[in-house]
Design a protein around this nucleic acid. Structure first.
Lengths: 194, 194
DNA sequence: CCAGAAAGTCAACACCTGTTGAATTCTGGT
DNA sequence: ACCAGAATTCAACAGGTGTTGACTTTCTGG
């Protein structure tokens, strides 16, 4: 055996497993679930296709592993009520735009649109992370409604800006977009709803 | 020859061609471009796969034909300025929700996310139809910006409501959604922008 | 009634997919 | 230097894809 446990340096197989995961994220993000092939992921990780299956059992399981995500939403409870919209929107933009970011969000959105399993996953992330965070701010009765509205605007922003790259929204600086969209989110979070 | 022209009853081949198109729209809408197979479209149209190719040359061309769409945007010039948001949002919801509707919008959005050709097409529809309609209302300088914002919210609504079926937005009556989202669109269309 | 065009089918191709089990190479401990 | 066991590759499978060209059926005008 190479090491029983607590070896700080990851074992060889752990490292290639991680490399496969990185390559998989890149491909899933760029091409979506269907167009991503086990062979292309393997090639990019400089590895045999069979190894990908050996480590992850199947393409579906590889996807599930690639998309295990934490939105890292800020704690909105400590934010002044009047800045909620701007704060949440900025966080969202940074999470998408950050060069360091794993491409997990792109993967999830791109794949969820044509893959029911991915859609399940996204709905789960949404209700566990977004809806519950917002639930902490609003009366229970409104929480789902507000969360849905926020999601419709923020995911719409991601869709048009990062996936479709629509002119008029994709070609503007993040700060400008923030200034326009932030107030909408603020309204959805705090405004009286009929 | 069966008829030179202006025969009111479509010829046989025109009818099966149309049937293929209907089947194709249904499959592209439900499954997206990649998962839709020429064979399954042919089967649903009760026709040989080869015929699909014979009539449309290739799967890509079939897709292009299936997605040739007219948003049928209302003429916003005749709408009172204060009702623009509600009017445009209602039109949009009806266009998606209408049982009679061809599934063209679902197809376009679902496919555009993972298919660059479809994305081109959607950007074209957007700039030719949405951006120009809005351009008629706003100063040229703001038009692109407003159109982008409107698209981000309306496509986000479609995404979360019809494709992802997020709870909190998909399970509410259209009128409720209209009441919440309409004012946002109104703001994007008419409000002063910094 | 029948030639010829139109409409549609058949069988096959070349290629690509996820996945498998056996075979091979690599590596660390004694 | 040896060798167990981990790490990885090889070759192949069964099934599905878009597309093609030759063939057959169906229709129609003279």
């Amino acid at each position: 055996m190479t090491s029983t446990r607590d070896d700080p340096r990851p074992t060889k197989s752990q490292r290639t497993k991680a490399a496969i995961l990185v390559a998989a994220r890149e491909h899933f993000a760029r091409d979506g679930y269907d167009r991503t092939t086990v062979r292309s992921v393997a090639a990019q990780a400089s590895v045999d296709p069979a190894l990908v299956i050996r480590y992850f059992s199947s393409k579906e399981a590889l996807f599930a592993a690639a998309v295990d995500v934490d939105l890292m939403l800020p704690d909105l409870a400590s934010v002044p009520r009047g800045e909620l919209g701007a704060r949440l929107t900025r966080h969202f933009l940074e999470r998408w735009e950050g060069g360091l970011s794993d491409d997990v969000l792109v993967i999830l959105l791109r794949s969820a649109v044509s893959n029911e399993q991915a859609a399940d996953r996204l709905r789960a992330v949404f209700s566990e992370q977004v809806a519950s965070t917002i639930g902490a701010l609003a009366p229970r009765r409104d929480a789902g409604r507000r969360a849905g509205l926020v999601a419709s605007q923020l995911l719409g922003l991601a869709l048009t800006r990062y996936l479709l790259r629509l002119p008029g929204i994709a070609d503007r600086p993040a700060d400008d977009v923030l200034a326009d969209v932030g107030p909408t989110i603020q309204r959805y979070l705090t405004q009286d709803l009929g």
